[in-house]
Computed example of a mutant assay.
Amino acid sequence: MRKLFLILSVFFALLSILFSALPLDTIAFAPIILASICLIITFIKSDENQRKLPKLIFVITYLCAAVVLFKTFLIKDEVAVDKQFEKEKIEIKQEAKKELEELEGLE
């Protein structure tokens, strides 16, 4: 039983590392919570000398949680207005109007 929960906790810890690196906001907490639950069960089922790996995975999981919290609350997503693109869009519209007027004048 201990090995099963250890394998599950390693799997969910790897998923939490992956999800915390991707821009998924709070969805990344799902594998973090699942890894924590599996780790608690693994830690309870382990003897004193078998608790080294679960402790390491605990640290990794909580670091992932800290990274997700940092990215969620401290990094702001801002959309910058591209002024050059807006100018080009207006110029293209004006050129298209001129071309249509020229075509109407030819008829």
Rank of each mutant, 00 (worst) to 15 (best):
I33M: 12
P23Q: 02
L22A: 14
A35R: 03
K98F: 06
E48H: 09
E99Q: 14
F58R: 05
A30S: 09
E95C: 00
I92K: 15
I57T: 08
V10R: 04
I41P: 08
F85K: 14
I41T: 12
Y62C: 08
F73P: 05
F73G: 08
F12R: 03
F11L: 14
L103S: 05
L14T: 02
I44F: 11
Y62R: 00
D82P: 06
L6D: 02
L24H: 01
E48D: 12
K87T: 10
I32T: 14
A13D: 05
I40L: 11
D82C: 10
L22S: 08
I75L: 14
S16P: 02
V81N: 09
I40T: 08
L53V: 15
K76P: 04
L56W: 04
N49T: 08
C38S: 15
K45N: 07
A65W: 07
K83I: 11
F58K: 03
N49M: 02
C38P: 06
N49V: 05
F12I: 06
M1D: 07
A28H: 04
E95S: 10
K76F: 13
P23V: 01
L8I: 03
F5N: 11
V67Q: 13
E91F: 07
E48K: 11
K45H: 06
S46A: 15
K87S: 10
L106G: 00
I41Y: 13
F43T: 15
L39G: 09
L56Q: 05
C38Q: 04
T26Q: 11
V81C: 02
K45M: 15
F11Q: 03
S20G: 04
Q84Y: 11
P31A: 05
V10Q: 03
L39Y: 01
V10S: 09
L24D: 03
P23F: 01
E78I: 11
T72Y: 15
F73N: 10
Q50R: 13
V68N: 07
L56V: 07
K71F: 10
T42R: 02
Q84P: 00
I27H: 10
F11K: 03
C64L: 04
K3T: 09
A21Q: 09
K76W: 06
C38M: 11
R2E: 08
L24A: 09
L34V: 02
